[in-house]
Nucleic acid binder design. Structure first.
Length: 186
DNA sequence: CGTTGGATTGGCT
DNA sequence: GCCAATCCAACGC
C-alpha cells in the first residue's frame, strides 16, 4: 500500500498493482549515464523517493532500491485507490475511480506529489510511505517489457497484477508472461 | 546557448 | 487508435 498524508491530515492510500524496475547499467534508466541534478535522488540511499517531471505535465514517483552511490529505482505505475478517494478525485479533477491511479502520472497527481517530495525518506517520513497491505499472490504477478522506453526492451522488468482493472493501459501492447520462479539473475 | 525529445495523458476520430 | 500538449533536462556545438 502506498500511503500519503496531506498537510490537512487527510490520509490517502492505494494498493500498488504495477511497477517497473530501473537498474544500474540499464540503458533505459535515468541513472545510466551519470548523476545529474535531476536524477540525484536515484543515487541516494534506498527507501527514499525519486520524483521527476516528464512530458511537460507529469510527475513520476519512484522508490530508490539500492545503496547510496548506485543509481536504481522502481517506478510506481499504478495503484488501486483505497482511502481518500474523494480527495484523489479532487486532485485529479475527475471522478471515475478507474482514472485516479491507473498510470504513473495519474497516481502522483492523485496523491498531490511533485518535485517538493523528491528525495524524501519513505521509511521515516510522514508525508509519503509504504505499508503492508493485502498480499499479492506470486501467481497473480505478470511481467512484460517496460512501457514507453526505447531501449532495454529485452528485460521483462514491468511487474503487474494480472487482470487488475487498475493496471495502466500501457502502450504499445507489450508481451506479457508469468513471474519467473526465481528473481532474474544479476 | 539552442535544439531535441521524453519511464504520459486525455481528447478526438 | 492516433496525436498534440507542455516543460525542461540533457546534450551537442
Amino acid at each position: 500500500m502506498l500511503v500519503r498524508r496531506l498537510p490537512d491530515g487527510t490520509r490517502l492510500s492505494g494498493r500498488i498493482v504495477e511497477t517497473e524496475a530501473y537498474e544500474p547499467g540499464d540503458p533505459a534508466s535515468h541513472g545510466f549515464r551519470r548523476m545529474t541534478a535531476r536524477n540525484a535522488s536515484m543515487f541516494g540511499p534506498a527507501g527514499h523517493l525519486y520524483v521527476y517531471f516528464t512530458y511537460g505535465n507529469h510527475w513520476m514517483m519512484n522508490v530508490v532500491t539500492r545503496r547510496a552511490g548506485i543509481g536504481s529505482a522502481v517506478l510506481l505505475r499504478a495503484i488501486a485507490p483505497l482511502e481518500g478517494i474523494e480527495a484523489m478525485g479532487a486532485a485529479r479533477g475527475r471522478e471515475r475511480l478507474h482514472d485516479l491511479g491507473s498510470g504513473p502520472g495519474k497516481l502522483a497527481q492523485a496523491l498531490s506529489v511533485d518535485r517538493s517530495h523528491d528525495g524524501i525518506d519513505l521509511v521515516r517520513g510522514r508525508e509519503v510511505w509504504i505499508e503492508a497491505g493485502s498480499p499479492v499472490a506470486p501467481d497473480a504477478v505478470a511481467t512484460s517489457a517496460r512501457i514507453g522506453v526505447r531501449v532495454g526492451l529485452e528485460e521483462r522488468w514491468r511487474f503487474f497484477v494480472a487482470g487488475d482493472p487498475f493496471v495502466s493501459r500501457g502502450r504499445p501492447g507489450p508481451p506479457t508472461g508469468p513471474l519467473p520462479l526465481r528473481p532474474t539473475r544479476r
